[in-house]
Simulated scan of single mutants.
Amino acid sequence: MRDPFGARLAAAVSARGPLCVGIDPHTSLLEQWDLPVDVTGLERFATTCVEAFAGQVAVVKPQSAFFEAHGSAGVAVLEWLIAAFRDTGTLVLLDVKRGDIGSTMAAYAQAYLGEGSPLAADAVTVSPYLGFGSLAPALDLAEQTGRGVFVLALTSNQEGPQVQRATGGNGVSVAQTMVDEAAARNAGASPMGSVGLVIGATVGRLDLDLSVLNGPVLAPGFGAQGAGVAELKAVFGDLRHLLPTSSRDILRHGPDAMALREAALRVRDSLG
């Protein structure tokens, strides 16, 4: 039985620094790397990313949609990518943002968190907007298998505040409710719990009490999307267990694997 994800993430960050590298093989990036926009290009992209990042950074975050866009052959490449990072010391956070209810959510959980599934990663992203309780199949299975779940809380897209900053009759925002629900799942865990949150690095005003979370915060938007070290500080202060995510700022240095690795290490080192 593997250790809980929270403990494994803490160890990975201690060894390799607080950086999550996004692996986003969208069409324009494949073209920039002079790769064909098909499964052969996707395979070469994936192989290069493994060569560049395995054992070098704490976490990588493949965006599932860019693999799914190539059909079953693209999903097979994603399965290979997840397996290739296994046991390298670099954790795989699969960005799938699944969210549903009942048996459907249980099936998603089995696909991405269940033992023996070729798509099972160290952690996944999920959407709680059918109610936090709808995530129970994923949260429960992740706890059983030593994996992690990152719950969308406050995202940087302009449509997000319509739901996430809305308040209920008790005056508490939806986003804060996600924080509180995740904190309840993480209570008592050491060095931290395995239920994280996704909070955009460019959200500006935070208005959230994260002191109760006892879990990791994934902060996409570091780098090309506009957030630097100063912005991270302004949004999150001295928050522990912060995991900034950078994709385009690093991937633009491809297709040379060593150049990619060096770019990732420069970004990691800038985080202190």
Rank of each mutant, 00 (worst) to 15 (best):
M1V: 13
E51S: 09
L239T: 09
A107C: 12
V229I: 14
A69V: 12
G228I: 12
R98S: 02
V235K: 07
Q176F: 14
A230I: 00
K61I: 13
D122Q: 04
L239Q: 12
D34G: 04
G55C: 09
R8L: 03
Y129G: 03
A106I: 07
L208H: 06
E143W: 07
S190R: 14
I82D: 00
R248Q: 01
S247W: 10
D207M: 14
A138H: 02
E79S: 08
D38E: 15
V50S: 00
G160V: 13
H70Y: 15
E79F: 05
L218D: 05
V37A: 06
D238G: 10
V124M: 13
A54L: 07
A259H: 08
Q32R: 15
D87Q: 13
D34Q: 09
L206V: 05
R8W: 07
E79T: 05
Q32M: 14
T88E: 10
G89D: 08
G131I: 11
V174Y: 09
T90Y: 06
A184P: 01
V163Q: 06
A111H: 04
G223L: 13
A46N: 05
H241P: 03
V267C: 06
Q225Y: 07
T27D: 10
E68C: 01
M1A: 12
T90V: 07
P161T: 12
V195W: 12
V96R: 11
R248K: 01
M105H: 10
G223Q: 06
A109K: 02
R266P: 01
L9H: 02
A111C: 08
N214L: 13
G188E: 12
G237Q: 07
W33G: 00
G102K: 03
L210W: 07
P36F: 14
P191T: 11
A111M: 09
H253C: 15
D24G: 03
D3Q: 15
G200T: 10
L78I: 08
M192Y: 09
G169W: 12
A120K: 03
A175I: 15
G226R: 07
A107Q: 14
V39H: 02
L81Q: 04
P255V: 11
G131E: 09
G17H: 04
P244G: 07
I199M: 04
I250E: 00
R268G: 00
L197G: 04
L213F: 12
F222W: 08
G188R: 13
L208D: 03
V39A: 02
S64K: 10
P216Y: 15
N186E: 14
G114P: 01
R165Q: 10
G114Q: 03
G188M: 13
D100N: 07
E51A: 15
G254W: 08
F150P: 03
R44W: 06
L154S: 04
L9C: 01
L213H: 10
E68D: 13
N186W: 13
K61N: 09
F67L: 06
